[in-house]
Nucleic acid binder design. Sequence first.
DNA 1: CTACAATAGTTGTATATACAAATAATGTAG
DNA 2: CTACATTATTTGTATATACAACTATTGTAG
Lengths: 151, 151
Amino acid sequence: MASIEEEIKQEKKFGTEYEKAAVNIMFTSSWLYNINAGRMKKHGITPEQYNVLRILRGSYPKPLMLGSVTCRMVDKSSNATRLVEKLRQKGYVERELCETNRRQVDIMITEKGLALLTKIDNEAEEWINTLKGITKAEAQELNRILDKLRN
Amino acid sequence: MASIEEEIKQEKKFGTEYEKAAVNIMFTSSWLYNINAGRMKKHGITPEQYNVLRILRGSYPKPLMLGSVTCRMVDKSSNATRLVEKLRQKGYVERELCETNRRQVDIMITEKGLALLTKIDNEAEEWINTLKGITKAEAQELNRILDKLRN
DNA sequence: CTACAATAGTTGTATATACAAATAATGTAG
DNA sequence: CTACATTATTTGTATATACAACTATTGTAG
């Protein structure tokens, strides 16, 4: 029986499922972030700083300018200047003014930074296991749907 | 369609589908958050403050103690004391020391707060459309997989 | 060449998160 | 009743986000 009341009710239910998904993504993100933060904390860095180090390892031994670091970050509006400064103080990255274009600053991960990443990666087993509550096929489906959601 | 690899300009492939999913969830969460923040900003509040107002509307006209607000929040470690204080200064909530238990503080949304939520809800069409890049079935599947991931 | 726009990065301010310590009121064991 | 634990909230400090304003350098139109 497809009464208009049911149609509207169903329409409302559609909306609910979508809003539920939005909240679910943000809630799960916060959950993942906190697990990750715990992993990093032992080593005195934050997930944001870890993200920057991963980006720099990706281009190693070529340095990256600050702007390139920013546009590769998960949270783009984060302030790369200050994150990089924190990492520099700990000796994990080096900053160098670019000679051909004095506006830009080249950033490169140090040996110490690479060693830290290796250490964290070697401890990643528990983290991977956390994610294995779903099957590989489900992970793929999840990636497909999230990519589609963002258009 | 911008895949997660393209969004963060990742040169090297993700280690596993699982790690890709974790980054994808966090990236999509940040994307959703920013859209939401734009919606709220016109009204001078943040998504976190909006979340608190929604929680308080849920129990209206019964007040909630601060601890109950905290445990209903998406980000539990956020500081309800300070968020509520911001909302109080804008006249959207009222604080009252509980007479039977002087340790606890009862919070209630005001008429002005309820009016603000109504206004924001009436503008939600664009937000809902943003989410409708996926089908209802995909939204359901997304919710199922995310719930399973968190066990 | 000069004026102006564009680019690259830095800094300031408000907000929020993460976590620990402090305060204050209440409950409870001896 | 006193000492101590528990509960409820507040406060302090470090980090990060959001966004705008600012400095400095480079590119370019006239």
